[in-house]
Simulated assay, not measured.
Amino acid sequence: MMKNITIKKQQIIQVEGTGDEKHQAFAHGLNQIHGRILKEKNDVIARIEPIRIEVVKAEEETYTERFLFFFVPRVRISYRVLLDVTVEVTSIVMEEVTFVEKKVLAPNHVPLPRWMKKSHKEAIK
């Protein structure tokens, strides 16, 4: 009978995202979740599922940009969000996996032809 080797845990991860548009700021923040979880855990991650997303801070920064300090002024907008994301992480518990030891030939092993095997054994004696 197979035993269950996966475990599910919930955790809160805080990420920050920036972008020229609102949806880019959110996407940048959410794309950081996978990397942050992999840094924290040594287990094999099977699935990461966001359950709840809370906006801690959402900022809109505006400034006027000018070409050569005088010409063609335009207003630039940048968005920044700070998110608390509750995720459910399904991982594989490596301590629960039993590996069976199996002896095999080395990968660099070169098989000898049959006619050389007898003379090779005699040379070793």
Rank of each mutant, 00 (worst) to 15 (best):
R80H: 13
D84S: 14
N42M: 08
I77E: 10
H28K: 03
K22R: 06
V44I: 10
E54A: 01
Q32M: 14
T64C: 12
I53T: 12
D43R: 06
V87Q: 02
T90H: 00
H34N: 12
P111G: 08
A123Q: 14
P113A: 13
I5F: 07
V100K: 05
V72S: 08
V100G: 04
L112E: 13
V110L: 09
V56L: 06
K22P: 01
R80L: 07
V110N: 07
Q32C: 07
E49K: 13
V110E: 04
R52V: 05
I51D: 05
V87A: 04
S119M: 03
P111K: 15
I51E: 04
Q11M: 12
V97S: 01
I51L: 07
E101A: 09
A106L: 15
P50T: 05
M2D: 03
T90P: 07
I5V: 14
V89W: 00
F70E: 03
E122C: 06
V15N: 07
V72R: 11
V55F: 00
K117S: 14
E60D: 02
L83S: 05
E49C: 00
G19I: 06
P113I: 03
Q14H: 12
A106H: 04
S119K: 11
R74A: 03
E49D: 10
P73C: 04
V75F: 04
D20Q: 06
T62K: 15
V93T: 05
L112A: 08
T62C: 14
V81R: 05
L68C: 11
L82H: 02
M2E: 12
E65C: 05
S119I: 07
T18N: 07
S119W: 07
Y79G: 01
P107E: 05
K57P: 01
H23P: 06
V56M: 04
E122V: 13
S91G: 00
T64Q: 06
L82N: 08
V89N: 00
E95A: 11
L68I: 01
T6M: 02
Q32P: 06
R66Y: 01
H120F: 11
E49W: 03
K121G: 07
F71N: 09
I5M: 07
V44R: 13
H28N: 12
K39N: 13
Q32F: 10
I51Q: 10
V87G: 08
N4E: 15
V81A: 09
L38S: 14
R36A: 07
K102P: 01
K39F: 03
R74H: 04
R76I: 15
M94H: 12
I5E: 11
E59P: 02
E101P: 08
K3A: 09
K22E: 03
I12L: 13
H28L: 08
V85E: 14
F70S: 00
G19H: 07
A46F: 01
P111R: 08
E61D: 15
